Amino acid sequence: MELELTGNASSVIPCGRVEHEMDPSRRAFVAAVVSVLAWPEDGMKAESGDGPAAPRNFIFFGRERQRISERAFLEHPHIVGAQLKYTWRELEPERDRYQVQPLLDDLAFLEARGKRLFVQLQDVLFSEEPVVPDYLRTDPAFGGGAARKYEYEGDDESGARFDGWVARRWDPAVRARFIRLLEVLGTKVDGRIEGVNLAETSVGFGESGKLHPRGFTYENYVEGVKATMTGARRAFPRSCVIQYANFMPGEWLPWTDRGYLRAVYAWADRIGVGVGGPDLLPYRKGQQNHSYPLIAARGRHTPAGVAVQDGNLGGSIPPRGNA
């Protein structure tokens, strides 16, 4: 399939229920390539019984939302729609004042041209740009609203570098406000949009505890992620909901396995939320040991979505000798 687009690809295995489970080895392969290929799933039949269901391909434009007007995208018959990012801060600039019109305008534009919208809702950013509304940052009840996250090489936290901001997902007060945003969006676009995906679970706070934000524990982070998934599912009963679950703080599989990531995937199966991740890196050991086997082993009614994002293509080349 030729694709003369410079946006990145993102695909979702359909959200409808299926009658037959795919062979596990086949499922693992499909999970690894759906972001770039419209690969038929021989073992999956749609609930309607009309035949096999195939991944649906979206172009990930991220926050370059103006690019949905490009002809190469609009005229391509194999691209279902666009995956666009919207940050919490821009959707709720002030407490209980929601600015949803830009999202509605994008949706109307796509609908008029026969394309679908998949919303990526950002409560995390990899920059100095604030990601949460100001009231969360200034009201002491929210503990600052967001926390600094870090990256570093190996186990050496002494060289930790600032890696952006993430909402305090483990904080019940902050989480309640995020779920309220989901509810507001649900009343306006549930059923009209193809789906909504929650940003990746991976955050870098180190293992020693020195970089841990106030009130953070590994366990309450897991529970916070699960509670947000539940809130999203309730807010969007008709549209697809996907949690990008790639890594979890406090474990590194297979050596340190506390069951955190597996708990997120089990919860997704239980409540009808899809799973996936932001990066298609089939030869990266981290993905091989974490999200990819869990995506492959997901419940037969659980949709999956994997996005090809910036920098992924270099990591998708087989290592020398393994082609």
Results as ranks from 00 to 15, higher is better:
residue 117 L to F: 07
residue 145 G to H: 02
residue 102 P to W: 06
residue 296 A to P: 13
residue 14 P to M: 01
residue 59 I to N: 03
residue 151 E to P: 05
residue 148 R to H: 08
residue 172 P to W: 04
residue 114 G to N: 13
residue 106 D to N: 07
residue 176 A to K: 15
residue 180 R to T: 03
residue 283 Y to C: 12
residue 51 G to V: 04
residue 226 K to M: 10
residue 137 R to M: 14
residue 283 Y to T: 08
residue 156 D to G: 03
residue 222 V to G: 00
residue 72 A to L: 09
residue 220 N to W: 01
residue 68 I to S: 00
residue 277 G to I: 08
residue 232 A to W: 03
residue 295 I to V: 13
residue 167 A to Q: 04
residue 77 P to Y: 06
residue 132 V to Y: 00
residue 30 V to F: 09
residue 42 D to Y: 08
residue 282 P to T: 14
residue 221 Y to S: 04
residue 173 A to D: 03
residue 6 T to R: 12
residue 18 V to R: 00
residue 38 A to W: 02
residue 272 G to T: 05
residue 238 R to C: 11
residue 37 L to I: 14
residue 182 L to F: 13
residue 2 E to F: 15
residue 322 N to C: 14
residue 256 T to C: 09
residue 141 A to Q: 10
residue 217 T to R: 07
residue 193 I to T: 08
residue 145 G to W: 01
residue 192 R to L: 12
residue 128 E to Q: 07
residue 174 V to P: 00
residue 49 G to R: 01
residue 217 T to D: 03
residue 128 E to W: 06
residue 122 Q to Y: 09
residue 54 A to T: 07
residue 75 E to D: 09
residue 245 A to T: 09
residue 238 R to K: 14
residue 100 V to I: 14
residue 203 V to W: 00
residue 163 D to P: 14
residue 129 E to H: 13
residue 95 R to N: 11
residue 183 E to S: 11
residue 59 I to T: 08
residue 312 N to L: 03
residue 5 L to H: 06
residue 132 V to E: 01
residue 268 A to E: 04
residue 292 Y to W: 15
residue 70 E to L: 15
residue 35 S to H: 12
residue 135 Y to P: 10
residue 85 K to V: 11
residue 255 W to C: 14
residue 258 R to G: 08
residue 151 E to R: 12
residue 275 V to Y: 00
residue 83 Q to M: 10
residue 250 G to L: 05
residue 224 G to T: 03
residue 259 G to W: 02
residue 26 R to C: 13
residue 279 D to N: 10
residue 313 L to K: 06
residue 207 E to C: 11
residue 256 T to A: 10
